[in-house]
Amino acid sequence: MIGNDIVDLNDPETQKNAHHPRFDGRVFSRSELMRLRLSGAPHRLRWILWAAKEAAYKAMKKIHPNLIFSPVRFVVQLDQTLRGSVDCPKGSLDVSVTEEATSIHAIAASAAMDEQTILSGAEWITSETDGNAQQPSQAARALALRSLERRLELPRGTFSIEKHDRIPVLFQHGVRSEFDLSLSHHGQLVAFACEIGERKALKEAHA
């Protein structure tokens, strides 16, 4: 299973002091709070850790539907390259975080992080973004569908996305796909991650 989370660092919500004074204490574990205190860039690290927790929760919730999102219990461990794991109440997931000057994108997966089997992307919403500038959830879907069909060299309209219990589910010609999908949006950013697995098999099945 896969989960992802995007953070727009330009958004007013992510500015310094935009959150409740007890936000960090509520959300971060003791070890994470220590890392924040020692960090030269605590504000950026705060959102890296948050995105990793969110991504892990989204992935784990699909395996354990009754899982509660208690952020302090999702403990993030990352190396210098921002790869690592999130220890959750129900197990551990691999996590990978990509940071740009104004964005953070975290992906958590129950399978190994492999660029050959995980397709992901993020983009800024513009007035030209599929005409969905006012509906970021639609823009995230459009990005995922466009990217999947391009990567798998399949015709437009092959895939569709429906929500089941607030979780996006991928369909291929109306049949539920085995490929797990996660969507996210925040501020002016939309993103997705998808476990595409053995993509050759998919193409052959389609043919």
Partner: peptide, 12 residues
């Protein structure tokens, strides 16, 4: 209301 803001709401 997004999930990070929900934390602020609960604290408030």
């Amino acid at each position: 209301v997004n999930s990070a803001r929900l934390v602020d709401v609960v604290l408030a």
